[in-house]
Simulated scan of single mutants.
Amino acid sequence: MTYQGVLSKMQTEFGDPIQYYLVFENSFLNVNQLLNKELEINFEGYQCLNCGKKKKIFRQGFCYDCFYSSPAVGDWIMKPELSTAHLGVADRDLEYEEQVQLQPHIVYLALSSEVKVGVTRKTQVPTRWIDQGASQAISIVEVPNRYLAGITEVALKSHYTDKTNWRKMLQNDIVHLDLVAERLKLENLIPAEVQEYFHTDKNDLYEMHFPVLNYPKKVNSLSLDKTHSYKGKLMGIKGQYLIFDDGTVFNVRSFEGYVVRLEV
């Protein structure tokens, strides 16, 4: 069968294992059903996820112009501590920024390679952790806006990484730690403004089980900019990566806005 469309990050459904879906304009594909089968990926072109024009993708699925104008990719996305909507101050579009920033946010610990600290909107639990390939995750605080989450993350960055080692994550080379016990150590590390939101009695440890038949010993990242056509047997899905039998891994999210043809 042939599927064609613009790549966007795989949609997921929490379960045992996680269910993955590639969604195109006129079709969708349950990727789990392709495990242990041959899949061919062919690069066909570009289409900006924001303006829809067939322009080369610059970053995060956006063309150059949209990346530097759309409020959906402002600096506060990657650096929540830069959020200013709670002050009524706009970055690019105050109405949009109020909608996103002025809602409950979670600061969390996750096990994806090392112990990682991060921020996500409450509505993105557990999707955010699935996208990172985390085997476990737990909330530290739930705060009413993105700024408070951001300053909490900054305070904890000197104790935990805020990045995932994607190679270790895909090789399932991860640390094993009691996140419930780890959370208990953090009360005196978070900012004073956030202390009231710190609760240690929540039973909210998530465990993620990914559909992986075999983890690779070495990984080689597939780039559609360098390789326009690739074929391999799908052995697993973790985070936003497809894992193939020869150790090739394909990060779907890194190629959002790329038009592809999939042969199954």
Rank of each mutant, 00 (worst) to 15 (best):
L87V: 02
F58K: 00
D173T: 13
S158Y: 01
I174D: 00
M1G: 12
C48E: 09
Y21F: 15
F67L: 03
K79S: 11
K53S: 11
A90I: 01
I41Y: 07
S158L: 01
E182W: 03
L111C: 11
G5N: 05
H228A: 04
T248S: 11
L156D: 11
A137S: 15
G133M: 09
T200P: 03
L184Y: 12
K54C: 01
N188G: 02
Y258G: 07
A192L: 14
E142M: 06
D91I: 14
Y21E: 14
K168H: 12
Y96W: 10
S135A: 03
A137P: 04
G61V: 04
G150A: 05
F14I: 05
L82S: 04
Y3W: 14
S158A: 13
N172I: 02
I140G: 03
L29D: 08
G52R: 13
L34S: 04
I130S: 09
Q19D: 10
K122E: 15
D178E: 13
S254P: 00
T227F: 01
G52H: 11
A110N: 06
N26K: 14
L189K: 15
I243Y: 05
K163W: 11
T84W: 00
L49I: 14
A137C: 08
G118Q: 09
L234E: 11
K122P: 00
R146N: 02
Y197R: 02
L34Y: 08
F244I: 12
F67R: 04
A192V: 12
T84M: 12
F58H: 11
V141N: 05
N172F: 06
Y230D: 01
R183H: 07
E97N: 10
S70D: 15
D204F: 06
V73M: 06
D65R: 13
S8V: 13
T227S: 04
A181P: 02
V252K: 03
N172A: 15
L242P: 06
K56Y: 02
D204I: 11
V260H: 03
V117I: 14
R128C: 01
T152Q: 08
R146V: 01
I77R: 08
M208K: 02
T12R: 07
N26P: 04
A72E: 15
G239Y: 10
Q11M: 12
M10W: 10
I138N: 06
